[in-house]
Design a protein around this nucleic acid. Structure first.
Lengths: 123, 123
DNA sequence: AAACTGGGTAAGTGGTAACTTACGGTAAGC
DNA sequence: GCTTACCGTAAGTTACCACTTACCCAGTTT
């Protein structure tokens, strides 16, 4: 569970832009750089970081390197986030039990909608 | 969906350590700094970043500031990760359909275990 | 073989982020 | 009121990161 490199990789906007462009499918380096406001070597360096974080995978095809999204890094990130989710759920329930019934805020301090309140989403 | 600040906040190991310490429940600043290898002002600055990323919440209690985990930032992060998950699933299936049946690699190129292969985990 | 395409690496630079010490400001205790 | 905890902010320093240009290497084409 080495989520550190993945989190550090995702901190950079340019690297996130690279991942966004990979949503449409695998792509060689040149095509990636063509759609970004930085030079091709910069993209190469970013791809290296993303690869070491297991967020992208590399595949050689003749003279070009095709990059694609790698599930492994995303999986590690998801596990990291989810591990906090359980904690935050616990603390949130505590706060609700102590704070909700006392104040008359309608009792929906723990919102039922997905956005806005914590919610178990994985088994 | 402003996942940028949250991702940038989580890139720093010290900030992640602060969040780890908040797993056990809310805590004042001094207690947090006591368990970390940096000075108290440094922790204060980190808490500011975490607060602006909606990863922690602040509550004043007399002369001390109690910090706790905030669900909102985590929710945004989860949505961001999950948005990639769907894409990576699609690409992965494509790769398996094209690569798996042709090569005789045992057919388990798409692994069934949760760690190692992409998997739908949210409705 | 020579030329071309595609891409990773090296070296250098500017900006920024993380940390420190010093200070100021508010609430509690004697 | 004065002192003592608790904490945020200011100013300054250092280290790292993203980017650029220049260079080099592998594979393709004619």
């Amino acid at each position: 569970m080495t989520y550190g490199p993945a989190l550090q990789a995702l901190a950079d906007p340019t690297r996130r832009a690279i991942l966004e462009r990979l949503r449409g499918g695998p792509s060689p380096v040149g095509a990636l750089a063509a759609g970004l406001p930085v030079s091709r070597p910069a993209v190469s360096q970013h791809l290296r970081v993303l690869r070491e974080a297991a967020l992208v995978a590399e595949r050689r095809e003749g003279t070009r390197n095709i990059y694609s999204l790698d599930p492994r890094g995303l999986e590690q990130l998801r596990q990291y986030i989810d591990s906090f989710w359980d904690e935050v759920l616990e603390r949130y329930k505590e706060a609700v039990e102590q704070d909700g019934p006392q104040k008359k805020e309608g009792g929906n301090h723990a919102r039922s909608k997905r956005t806005g309140g914590p919610q178990k989403h994985h088994g």
